[in-house]
Each structure stands twice: as structure tokens, then as C-alpha cells.
Design a protein around this nucleic acid. Structure first.
Length: 477
RNA sequence: CGCGGGGUAGAGCAGUUUGGCAGCUCGUCUGGCUCAUAACCAGGAGGUCGCAGGUUCAAAUCCUGCCCCCGCAACCA
């Protein structure tokens, strides 16, 4: 059994503050990383920031900031999530890091050496009104929707292209031989049919004269890499590839035995499970082992957006629910892979029901009842049983929490049925026996909570030991 | 005939792969308890599983048609 575990989130693009969708992705990855550590694995958990590309460059220009200073400030904002959500990532890669740029250039070189890169004239449609490039899908009747009637300029530009089309068969073979390559299955079907329909080569460079903010293309001063080609490389540059082969093989894996787990939002299905895999195949590198695709979070039945004004930030959640409350709510928002709908109202209800009234109140009851006892806590060898391990490995983490909460309910009922506060006065033997079960159950709960709510897990253990009254989660409103 | 997802109790969701008494949380009603964070426990009410056909001993689940909602439509991170 391989002892090294590698998991990575996608790298958020630094043109906006961290939002809750990414927070949910990274918390899920964190739960998995902590779980694997508990199982005795050596874990590399990667995240970071994607910092190149025209949008960032333009934004920095608008704000009259030095581009590097601009991305530095955003990278810091994302790194703040580590403390804010008590994340345990081991690597934080920035695509402006020197070693990353070198890795991206090396990957380019290998893909090129294998004949998957070529140069061609590329025609773009440019709206003078917006001063922006437009794709056909953005146009209505051939005009920019914001400037109807204004003719679009056709600009010819020479760019490098990636022969995505030539990798269709290899990708399909990868999918065929790994029936769970993308989870959930419906997302896998979607990407399979996308690849089956045929692939179009895509441009992987930009003219430096128009947009200098990118990794330079070697041996061609006029071009920089298109942001996706550069950004995707982070998953291996973070491991020290190409220099550190040992680290790379241990964690990313080998062609025979890939080892890397990726988690991404559904907007990244194509990039992660097709484009990136094709790039790896084109360079004769091992592919990922599995790509987990998460759904989107909606608020009150609507898409989260600035114009609607319903954006919820992780910082706001932490302010209201605390770190572990926020982690709990993000993990239990719904089935992995589905779109989930949240609202403040629903979150407060769930927080009060599960955390304050459920786990928190049970802890208070047990701690108070055990005040004058000194019982030995049983050491459990097995914390997670087979079926929970399977659920964890499939990112059905909300179901594992449901299983933990079954114990919470069972114990509340058990207290009701056995009435330990009465037993304490008249039947010490029985009282001890009842309390033994309750204390051991609560201890088991605290062990199982380590990957999900590390701080709460500690608090419960401490309360069981010191018998000091503890409010784990204050009721809201 | 562009692609995909969804329509299950007042609300939010699971169950559909592999057909077998329709389940969970919240809310609501009634009762109980007092160790506990006005928390906890028991019981009840509440659903023609979007609509119409079909297959089957049996359909939320499989097949056909239709209606409604929501995303995406490739170089947009």
C-alpha cells in the first residue's frame, strides 16, 4: 500500500477576493488530507494562486499598480484562508514563482518536442467599443451586445497552438481504462461525450506586445504563454518537477501508477479532466489518478453574483459561525458534486440544530453528569469503519458526518431512557456503566471529528478530561 | 433536432446505477423529562414522487412522449 498521498485544489485566479465556492473546495480537500494523515499517510496538500493573464494585467493597470505588487496583495488574501479556516495545506504555489515558471517552460519544451505545438495565424474579433476581444458565443447577430451596430474589427495574430485534437484517442483510452477517473459519474459522462464529439486545438500563447504578463515562451521573444497552459503546470511544479524526480514520482505517481487526486469546481471540468490530462499525455507524463468535480453554491435559489448582491464570503461565515461552524456548514451543504443552495437562514437553522442543540448540548450534558467521576477512557483501534472509509474516499463526507450524528442522537435518547441523574442517587454501579458508554461514545465522536472540525475535537477531549463546563457552539439569535 | 442538470410532505434534500412497504433534517401539533446551551425524548398530522402512456406480480426507480425551472455552449481563470 502506497504511503504517499497527494491532493490539490485548483488555483483560484486572483482577480477577486476568495469566495465561498472556493472555500468549500479547499475545506473538502483539507478534510480529505487530514483524514489521510490519520490513516498514516504522508500527505502533500497543494493549493496556491493563478496570477498571470490579461485580466490581471488590465486590472493592475486600471488600479495603477505594479502588476507584481497587485498579485502579491491577492496571493496574501488567499493565503489568509489557511488561518481563517484552519487549513492544513503543505504547499502554496504561486504561478509567478520562479521554479513554477521554469517548470511551465520545461513542460512546453517536452510537449513541443513530441510535436504537439505549432504556430498559426489566429483571427480574433475585436470590439472597439469595449476595447476587448470577443468570441462568437458572446456576439448577438454578429454584433457585440453592448455596442450593437458597431462593426467588429478582425485582427490577425500569430500564436502557438496546442494539438488538443491529436490527443482525443489517448484521452478516451485514459477514460476507458479508468472507469472512475472523474467523479461523480454524470460529470464523467459529460466530459466523455465532449471529447468524443471531437476536439479543437487551442491557442496557448499571446502576443507579448499586447499582453506581457505571462511566462515567456522560450526561443520566441514575441510571445508569452496563455494563462491556462502555465497555470495547470502548478500541480507538478509544486513538487519540484522536473528537478526533484523522487518527490514527483512518490506523490504525483508514475505512468503505471498515478497517485494524484484533484478536486475542482464544475466550471473546471474541461480544463482539469481533459485539457490538463492531454497536456500531460503530450509530454509523456503520468496523468492524474482521479478528478473530483464539485457543484456550485447558489444563494436563495439564485446564482451568487455581485450584481444581485447575494455574495457570501468565507470571512463573514467565520465571523458568525466560527471556524468549525463554517467548516461544518460548508461540508454538509449537500451531496458532493451536486449544486447546493444555501442561505443565511438555512445555515443558522442547521448550525443551531446540529451544532448547538446537537453536539454542543450533548457534550454539556455528558460533561456535567460525569463531573464527579473518574472513568478510564477506552482506547479505540479503529476510528473509521470500512463503510465510512469508503465514503471518505469518495468525498461523500457529508454522509460520514451524518453517521457521526447518528451517535449524537442515539446518546441523547440513551440519556433520556436511562436517566443517569436519577441513577447517580440510587444505583452507582448502573450509573457508572451508563456513563462509561456515554463518555466512550463522546470520545469516539471527538476522534472522528478530527478531519472535519479539528478545534472542536480538541475541545471535547479537553472537556472530558477536565470536566469543565464548555459551550462548544453558542446558539445564534 | 446544440449539451448537461433538476422537478419527491410547508421548506431544504436523500433515494433512481442494481425495480420490492416513500426516507432524512427543519418547521408544525400533542405529550413527556429536568442532567443539559429555553436545550433533550416520544408520538401525530402532512406526499396521486412534474404530466400522460407503456413494460412488470411489483415503478420515484426501466422505456416512450410532453410540460416547467436552471446552468453551459470550447481560446470565458
Amino acid at each position: 500500500m502506497k504511503n504517499e498521498f497527494y491532493i490539490t485544489t485548483t488555483l483560484p485566479y486572483v482577480n477577486a477576493a476568495p469566495h465561498i465556492g472556493f472555500a468549500s473546495e479547499i475545506v473538502l480537500a483539507d478534510v480529505r488530507a487530514r483524514f489521510e494523515r490519520l490513516q498514516g499517510k504522508e500527505v502533500i496538500f497543494n493549493t496556491g494562486t493563478d496570477e498571470h493573464g490579461s485580466k490581471i494585467w488590465q486590472k493592475a493597470q486600471e488600479e495603477r499598480m505594479d502588476t507584481q505588487a497587485y498579485v502579491d496583495s491577492y496571493a496574501a488574501k488567499f493565503d489568509e484562508l489557511k488561518e481563517m479556516l484552519e487549513l492544513s495545506y503543505t504547499n502554496f504555489i504561486r504561478t509567478t514563482d520562479e521554479n513554477h515558471k521554469k517548470a511551465a517552460q520545461e513542460l512546453w519544451k517536452r510537449v513541443d518536442a513530441n510535436g504537439y505545438i505549432y504556430k498559426k495565424q489566429y483571427r480574433i474579433k475585436y470590439c472597439v467599443g469595449c476595447e476587448l476581444e470577443k468570441t462568437d458565443s458572446e456576439l448577438i447577430d454578429g454584433f457585440c451586445p453592448l455596442h450593437p451596430g458597431k462593426e467588429l474589427e478582425i485582427i490577425e495574430e500569430e500564436n502557438y497552438f496546442f494539438k488538443f485534437s491529436a490527443l482525443q484517442e489517448k484521452l478516451l483510452k485514459l477514460y476507458r481504462s479508468n472507469p472512475e477517473f472523474v467523479v461523480p459519474n454524470k460529470k464523467f459522462n459529460e466530459i466523455k461525450s465532449f471529447v468524443e464529439m471531437g476536439l479543437e486545438d487551442f491557442s496557448i500563447s499571446r502576443l507579448k506586445s499586447k499582453m506581457p504578463w505571462g511566462v515567456p515562451v522560450q526561443n520566441d521573444d514575441t510571445q508569452v504563454m496563455y494563462v491556462w497552459f502555465d497555470a495547470l503546470t502548478n500541480y507538478i511544479s509544486t513538487l519540484g518537477w522536473p528537478d526533484n524526480q523522487e518527490n514527483f514520482q512518490n506523490f504525483w505517481g508514475t505512468v503505471e501508477s498515478p497517485n494524484a487526486i484533484q478536486i475542482a469546481g464544475k466550471d473546471n471540468l474541461r480544463q482539469q479532466s481533459a485539457m490538463w490530462q492531454a497536456m500531460l499525455l503530450a509530454a509523456d507524463l503520468p496523468t492524474s489518478k482521479k478528478v473530483f468535480i464539485n457543484g456550485f453554491i447558489g444563494v436563495d435559489g439564485q446564482k451568487m453574483s455581485k450584481s444581485i448582491g447575494n455574495v457570501i464570503s468565507p470571512a463573514e461565515m467565520v465571523e458568525r459561525f466560527g471556524i468549525d461552524g463554517t467548516r461544518y456548514l460548508l461540508i454538509t451543504k449537500g451531496t458532493f458534486g451536486e449544486d447546493n443552495d444555501i442561505s443565511w437562514e438555512k445555515m443558522i437553522t442547521k448550525y443551531n440544530a446540529d451544532l448547538a442543540n446537537g453536539l454542543g448540548n450533548l457534550t454539556s450534558r455528558v460533561v456535567k453528569l460525569s463531573e464527579n467521576l473518574n472513568l478510564e477512557i477506552e482506547k479505540k483501534d479503529v476510528i473509521f469503519e470500512e463503510n465510512n472509509i469508503r465514503l471518505m474516499e469518495n468525498f461523500d463526507v457529508d454522509k460520514v458526518l451524518e453517521n457521526i450524528w447518528l451517535i449524537v442522537r442515539e446518546d441523547n435518547k440513551y440519556i433520556e431512557d436511562t436517566k443517569p441523574w436519577e441513577l447517580a442517587k440510587k444505583d452507582e454501579v448502573k450509573f457508572n456503566k451508563v456513563m462509561e458508554k456515554l463518555i466512550n461514545d463522546l470520545n469516539l465522536i471527538s476522534e472522528m471529528l478530527i478531519p472535519f472540525m479539528p478545534e472542536t475535537s480538541e475541545k471535547i477531549k479537553k472537556a472530558l478530561k477536565t470536566k469543565e463546563r464548555v459551550i462548544l457552539f453558542e446558539r445564534i439569535k
